[in-house]
Write a protein that binds this DNA or RNA. Structure first.
Lengths: 251, 251
DNA sequence: TTGCCACTTTGATCTGGGTCAAATAGCCTT
DNA sequence: AAGGCTATTTGACCCAGATCAAAGTGGCAA
């Protein structure tokens, strides 16, 4: 939570292509002022894999969004049971305007670079800039849909369906990120341990391992390595999710 | 989805206390114009218990909010498995600005009165009225938190903890609604069937029945009737949820 | 290149909650 | 007050996934 940021990007440059907030919030007919105002309260910080970005209960000094890497959003019960409630990929928002204390843990799964805005000034800007709040609303409604889709996975799907759902979501976002089509043969890294996957899916790590290897044995996926997946039969993977069509999933 | 509304409230009156959108969105220093503009696109409609308010895939001609009654927001898999993803109580928002087709079912659990706004004009207003979009953002962030809290319940809690969590949430919202304190002896109606509870909790109706009666046998709750619960020992009920403190739960 | 350590797989067993089946309890209607 | 609903409870059994245990794998530090 300190400000000893290792700046990977120059926060003074006018042309910060990497910052999703700006990219999304600032449109052609905005005043240049707005850009400059966001610029002033912005900084970048990079976190090491496994590092806690935010602990539940922390004072929220900033909000921001993921520029590179993967972070997890999760809750832990006092007896250690953990549930991931969000997977934060590049362009995803971190924190919540108006919230002083964090209610979830945020942890870097890989090396993560965050584009951060000081919370209070950001809230002030939010009140002044209609485009920014419109974009925030759109983003939070998308997240809400994604969370609700995930509730179906958690509440009603069996282990195999959960794994298939997880893989198809990761594959989809990965493809989207690299602007590549998603098809048979597409491959990608799972940036999470089996345990983190289990925490996302409401399973144990042993069950995750068994089901991944079952999907491999059945020729739905291939494993280049333990964390590198190739989708052999995409249509089949979609069937295995238990969803009616390929459309549903948001995240 | 038709407009054959049975108007319980006069949509022409200037003093519609029941409409949560207005109550929340319109503040003292807003122009009177804004009120009038919302007024113009507003109507009320009442739905019978069990009636579908929105089917997944329907064209969304309106957004709005619950004035009275309880509605459920849910997804159904083609094999019939169902997961409730939200419980809509008075003041809760229905629909999503910018969304043309519904992605969830909305069903009246009791008789429900909705305050509805035609979607497209509402979106136009949203772009013009900063207070309205700020309120919408706040509401959707609250819902997002609630959905994420519920993911912990679905993914990591056992049946008894799920039931305790459900009862404590209902009790809390009921108390809040009637502006009464929540304490030992508080009582309320569960407005859902055992099956609807099961769909909310990711359980079967038999398990819901067994666990409710187990909590009764253990003196945590008492049942005045099958749907009317008295909380005998509130602190104990909170323990049974498995949460560390009484604070967490949103919805 | 060896050894360590964290991650992953695999096996054996157990159990919470699902499934199937039947009985019971409230209800509106007539 | 009898019949016919639907909602709920209760019982018996079973199985998917948890748990416990052990072995395998691979990356990297010295």
């Amino acid at each position: 939570m300190d400000e000893t940021a290792s700046l990977k990007f120059d926060s003074n440059t006018k042309s910060c292509a990497q910052c999703p907030i700006k990219k999304r919030a600032v449109c052609a007919h905005c005043e240049m002022d707005e850009l400059a105002q966001l610029e002033e309260i912005k900084s970048y910080k990079t976190y090491a894999p496994g590092e806690m970005i935010i602990w539940t209960g922390d004072d929220m000094s900033f909000v921001g969004s993921v520029v590179t890497g993967v972070a997890t959003l999760s809750q832990t019960m006092e007896d250690g049971r953990r549930q991931m409630v969000g997977l934060l990929l590049p362009s995803d928002f971190v924190g919540r305007p108006g919230r002083k204390k964090a209610v979830f843990d945020v942890e870097a799964a890989t090396e993560v670079t965050l584009c951060r805005f000081k919370r209070v000034p950001f809230e002030t800007l939010l009140a002044k800039l209609p485009h920014l709040s419109a974009r925030m609303l759109e983003m939070s409604l998308d997240e809400l849909d994604a969370a609700r889709e995930w509730m179906l996975v958690l509440g009603r799907k069996n282990a195999r369906e959960k794994i298939a759902s997880f893989l198809s979501i990761i594959a989809r976002r990965e493809a989207e990120l690299h602007k590549e089509p998603l098809r048979d043969g597409s491959e990608f890294d799972i940036k999470l341990t089996r345990e983190a996957m289990a925490d996302y899916l409401g399973l144990t790590l042993e069950t995750v391992s068994r089901q991944i290897n079952a999907l491999k044995k059945d020729g739905v996926i291939a494993l280049q390595s333990k964390r590198h997946v190739q989708i052999v039969d995409f249509a089949r993977l979609m069937m295995e999710t238990g969803d009616d069509d390929d459309g549903g999933m948001v995240i």
